[in-house]
Amino acid sequence: MSDRILGAACLLAGAGMAWAAHDYAAPISYEPVGPRAFPLLLAALMALAGGWLIARPGPQGFGLGREHYRSIGLAMAAVFAYAALFETLGFPLATAVMALPIGMAFGGSWKQSLAAGVAMGLALYLMFDKLLDVVLPTGLLSFVLGGR
């Protein structure tokens, strides 16, 4: 990805914002500036900056190391899966499941990562939910830990 792609994305985002905001109007207006002006101003400035990047891109390209593609893709997928499963599996289980790929991406063996995940899931659950009163979902383990 280069500056040009970023610029084009910003141009598109600006256009999209302007399109979405163009018919924002207050049903009854008390003030001269309605809900539309500020978003339109931002959309214009964003498109302007995007156009600038397309016209004058910086020298450096996208510095994503190819050797990291796999581990970064894996980590991104793990983050999304963690978010999606957080409530269904419950915090302790979801954390253990998340720690396996993330731990391995950071150089742990699968045994180490899994063990760390299980320990952390339980310890953090006990600390936050039981000790500090920050309620966390228990999901599949609700028959042991209570809650939901």
Binding site: V79, A84, F86, M98, I102, F106, A116, V135, L136
Partner: peptide, 27 residues
């Protein structure tokens, strides 16, 4: 080691986000 530290950071971050509205959407 990072393989314990990083999952820990992610778990604590998720707890923080979840504690506000308790929705999967926010996560």
């Amino acid at each position: 080691p990072n393989w314990t530290l990083v999952p820990g950071i992610l778990a604590v971050s998720a707890v923080g986000v979840y504690s506000v509205h308790a929705t999967t959407f926010d996560l």
